[in-house]
Each structure stands twice: as C-alpha cells, then as structure tokens.
Amino acid sequence: MTSNQRLQAILITGRTIDQGVGKEKGKTSKEYFDGVAICHIDPADLKKLGVKGNVNVQISTIYGSVIVKAVESPRAPHPGIVYMPYGPWANAVSDPDTDSIGMPSLKGINAEIEPIGDKPVLSLSELLKSQFGKEPYALH
C-alpha cells in the first residue's frame, strides 16, 4: 500500500480531557502540545490512508492547512469523521464564518487528510510565527 492516499472527511473540533489538563498546565507546556497538536482518526480510515497511527498528517480545508500527529481514535467507530482538540492547530484550518451571529463554524468542516511522511509538527512558537509573522516570546 502506498502512503499517498488522501481521505475526504468531516472535521469536528472539541474538548478532550488531555486538552483540558494541558491547558491548565500551560499553553506552552509539553502536555498541551501532546494533547492538542493531534487528530483522532477512525481505524478504518487509517487503513484507507495506509498508515497505522502516530504518524504526521496534513489536514487541509479551504481555510488553511496544518500538520498534526494522527492517532487511532479511542472513540471509534466514527468513519469519515476526524476529530481535533481545540487549539491553535485546529484553528489554523477551521471555518471563520459566523453566519452573522458571532459564532464561527468549528464543527463539521469538510477536510482532506494526507500522510506527510517526515515533515514535523510545528511547535506553538513556530506555528505562531509562521501564521502571524510576529516574534513570539521566548520563555527561557
């Protein structure tokens, strides 16, 4: 099987306990990065992509694209649905349209997933810099 398969899916963003714990620990913490810069993919979909899990994938929507780590979903089955915890990585690809009521559309976005090989997941600072072109604060 080749690893160049692409998957059309519906992207849902939401909370996870790891995201919650990481957020309380600190947005620059490793816990937060590990809990948030990921996506949950159904095992059947992983099969379609020709990968096992714990590999980096690129998620693209018409609003942008981002690289995160794909993990096998602990909440399967939900074929065709890819789940991302809230965070800057998810928001790089989410739909800003508020339908004139102030609320962007953060659930149910059409997305394309593809394995990306060795390309790394950007750290928070790298992601911010690449997105906004402003120098993030170096904590240490």
Binding site: G26, Y63, P88, N91, Q131, F132, K134, L139
Partner: peptide, 25 residues
C-alpha cells in the same frame, strides 16, 4: 489559540494588550 486564524490575524496585526497569569499563544 481559540479564534479562527483569519480573526486572530487582525488581532495580532494591531496593538495587543494581554493580561494573563500564563504565557499563552
């Protein structure tokens, strides 16, 4: 972190004051 990228872009482009206990995005 929490706004769609396009909204965050305008936020970052203009003077931005932050009051927070933590170093967040």
């Amino acid at each position: 972190s929490n706004f769609p990228r396009k909204a965050a872009e305008h936020l970052v482009k203009n003077p931005l004051i932050v009051i927070d206990p933590h170093m967040n995005a």
